[in-house]
Amino acid sequence: MAAPITLHLEFGGGAELLFEGVKDHQVTLPSQSQPWDMKQLLVWIRANMLKERPELFVQGDTVRPGILVLINDADWELMGELTYELQDRDTVVFISTLHGG
């Protein structure tokens, strides 16, 4: 049984609008038998945080194309993307690059 973990989530580039305009969120993921990974985090965000238009944030089991993800300030493409195993006090940043000018 893995202990609950606390994460710092940050939304930017307009993605925050899907979260009531709030950029910074401290969230605690409940304990579960498996360690939390990014794929599960997205499911959790969709179920617990997204107030409207979830398709503008998640599509299929991943983020909508055009939304960048940084895990602890590094490109998630370097970290295994959806398979990255989250650690307590990780920072995950989502930046929308869609229609920015």
Partner: peptide, 11 residues
């Protein structure tokens, strides 16, 4: 984080 990434083909 590096250990659990071994199995992936992504960098």
């Amino acid at each position: 984080y590096s250990e659990q990434l071994e199995k992936r083909t992504v960098p």
